[in-house]
Design a protein around this nucleic acid. Structure first.
Lengths: 232, 232
DNA sequence: CAAGGAAATTGACACATATCATATTTTTTA
DNA sequence: TAAAAAATATGATATGTGTCAATTTCCTTG
């Protein structure tokens, strides 16, 4: 039986063990601190809107954000940004000065806004910081590849199994957790219809893979879900 | 009537106008030149295999590479890397030292191999270079979001229309071009079956959107294809 | 130039899953 | 606490597209 935290699901959340700001000098840290703004968002509120000018990079101090791409009245969740994530890095190139995606608060979330030009300047000045930013970008890219593959090549069973393992292993880091997401939100995350999510969830329960009591999800057979990820 | 080069298809190829090496000092350029290896690959040959150690970053001097993710005997094309692209950047984080995808030559391709540790060192030393590498990563990320959306949210018509516009506008940069890809390869690119590609292509011809003569593709109605991208 | 093989094409069919309609349960709010 | 609204659940149906099989066309190679 594998430990839920060690499950490697292609998933939605990058591992994020990188903290670029740690590589700044005290002086540089102070520049950030002096120019930062801290804002609280309520669940559901939009933190950054695709297409608007990226004047600041967003750092998630506490909470969870949904990062999604919007087009033609459809939307695609790119990733879930947990505490410690940076949002808006894709606007670092000066010719790409608008948000390439929308970010909204999945739960009540506290963010720190940092002037993007200060970040640009620090990248030029501090190699270790630049390197850490690159690491963050790479980590997000790798996670996105996995999610991309999952959503295009797996069918309902596999997609949902993947999401559940990801929630358990990467977000809540325990096999029994309270899920505040509605079935509709879960469906959006898995890239399938709400009804399909409900049916698939029921099937998983009948097969003894998971147990749902109200809003509480419990992963019973992580290895079984893992197998479905790779076959279903 | 829009110019084919200005069509904004979500697409498969990043615009790639960034050349990080231009920001190096003469000394730094010399380090690169002294340590580089140039290799020629024939069409179809594998340039880098997912899972193997990334000892070098790959620069495409001339040609076209297919970058794809492999899992469970299935594969997903992430992007097409044209002349001037860098491959292997996602291995820059030292804890991510294997290729995250496979790259193979779409046509005969000449590449330059550059020791990844030299790149890492240059990122630390040269802020402008680091910044340019970040720009490249961001550009690839943005392109990948578009492709991700296209492949998950559009159906056959839209996906294929998108690919055709991308080939015409971004790769060949003309509305009449010779396509060396087989229907099977085109299908892989559009994330659909070979038969569906053939049927859809036929429909496009019947509707007077494109004209195919042997291996020559001609875009007749780019605006029409564009519309299909966003509705089909 | 003929034979063999690969690629392209076409049609029939299967199947996964979205959509729609409707019912039930839960939550909100007045 | 009743009424309204939202979320969840379930069944029937529609549809897009993949798969399989068969045929034709094109290209290679002896």
């Amino acid at each position: 039986m594998s430990e839920i935290q060690n499950i490697k699901a292609s998933c939605t959340v990058p591992k994020s063990s990188i903290h670029p700001f740690e590589y700044l000098t005290p002086d540089q840290k102070e520049i950030i601190e002096k120019n930062k703004v801290v804002i609280e968002y309520n669940k559901g509120e939009i933190i950054a809107k695709q297409g608007t000018f990226t004047t600041h990079i967003i750092y998630i101090c506490e909470g969870l954000a949904k990062v999604y791409y919007e087009d033609d009245h459809k939307s695609l969740i790119l990733r879930i940004a947990p505490t410690g994530s940076l949002i808006g890095l894709t606007s670092l190139p000066t010719n790409q000065n608008v948000f390439q995606y929308t970010a909204s608060a999945y739960v009540d979330t506290e963010v720190k806004l940092i002037d993007i030009n200060i970040i640009r300047q620090l990248i030029l000045e501090n190699g270790r910081f630049a390197s850490a930013i690159i690491d963050v970008l790479c980590e997000v890219a790798i996670q996105k590849n996995g999610r991309f593959f999952c959503l295009t090549h797996r069918q309902a069973f596999g997609k949902l199994a993947d999401i559940i393992l990801c929630l358990a292993g990467n977000i809540f880091k325990t096999d029994k957790f309270e899920l505040t997401l509605s079935r509709k939100e879960l469906a959006e995350l898995a890239g399938m219809s709400t009804e399909s999510v409900i049916r698939t969830l029921k099937k998983f329960q009948d097969d003894g893979l998971i147990k749902i009591t109200g809003k509480t999800f419990e992963v019973i057979d992580a290895d079984g879900l893992m197998r479905i990820c790779h076959t279903g």
